[in-house]
């Protein structure tokens, strides 16, 4: 595929809540195989942008294309079927049932009875959930719940993964493990990752998109973005305070 052939593209994507414009005329695109990071202060519209992509929020205007197909009006489950998986900001998992059942339910959606069990075992292994496979997800720590959710998304072999703050609430070691996992995933899928931790971003990404007040402020290489005074003002400067 040529570079102009985008995997994901939004044109003029806008989401309003009453009088508040959460996502404002966003033109975003991603080439196949890319790993992109989204940064921006809280309330910049990153999570809302994600939720528009998966149709958890209905866009107010604008269009979304995935593999050149208009998916703006598709339902959430249809979008999932096309190969877009999301780990939401607050882990969205099945709290009252065990880890293994969580993964199995995800796997069984796209695999037959026999291979679903195999995929489940593989993913548990790959994400490193073996020790907690029988625990109720509701009892797990925040970091573990994030992994369960990532594991669920991985079962479908998605073309595109949306990860909203995958390292929130994780220890240093856990963050490193997650970075390794994301690197590994990026070999076979495209990713968009919302993150705050610049060290983490440096470790995984090369291109970064900065959101500010619902719009794209800058889009560039990691180093260039970090050196950009505008970005420092709105985002990095704030963190130092």
């Amino acid at each position: 595929m040529a570079d102009t052939n985008f995997l994901l593209e939004t044109r003029g994507l806008t989401k309003r809540f009453g009088g508040v414009i959460a996502v404002n005329d966003v033109n975003f695109n991603l080439i196949p195989g890319e790993l992109r990071c989204l940064i921006g202060p809280n309330g910049a519209g990153k999570s809302t942008f994600f939720k528009c992509l998966t149709h958890q929020h209905k866009p107010s205007s604008g269009k979304i294309f995935f593999k050149d197909r208009d998916i703006t009006r598709l339902h959430t489950h249809q979008i999932a079927h096309l190969g877009i998986g999301i780990k939401t900001q607050v882990p969205s998992v099945f709290d009252g049932i065990p880890v293994r059942e969580n993964i199995w339910l995800a796997a069984r959606r796209y695999h037959g009875r026999g291979s679903a069990n195999k995929v489940t075992a593989d993913v548990i292994d790959r994400v490193g959930l073996g020790n907690i496979r029988d625990s109720m997800v509701g009892r797990l720590a925040h970091g573990e719940r994030q992994w369960v959710e990532i594991g669920m998304v991985l079962t479908s072999d998605p073309t595109l993964l949306l990860l909203d703050e995958p390292t929130a609430g994780m220890t240093h070691e856990e963050t490193e493990k997650t970075a390794r996992l994301i690197k590994e995933i990026s070999e076979s899928a495209s990713l968009i990752v919302v993150e705050h931790d610049m060290q983490f971003i440096k470790a995984i990404a090369n291109k970064v998109t900065v959101f500010h007040q619902g719009s794209i402020l800058v889009e560039d290489k990691v180093e260039a973005v970090m050196a950009n005074p505008l970005v420092r003002d709105i985002y990095l400067g704030k963190e130092k305070d």
């Binding site: 339902h75 959430t76 489950h77 249809q78 999301i86 969205s92 099945f94 959606r109 959710e149 479908s156």
Partner: peptide, 16 residues
């Protein structure tokens, strides 16, 4: 049962 636990997640996994 999964839907009972979390409707949003079930949809995100592709279940109608």
């Amino acid at each position: 049962i999964g839907i009972r636990e979390n409707e949003e997640r079930a949809e995100l996994l592709g279940y109608d």
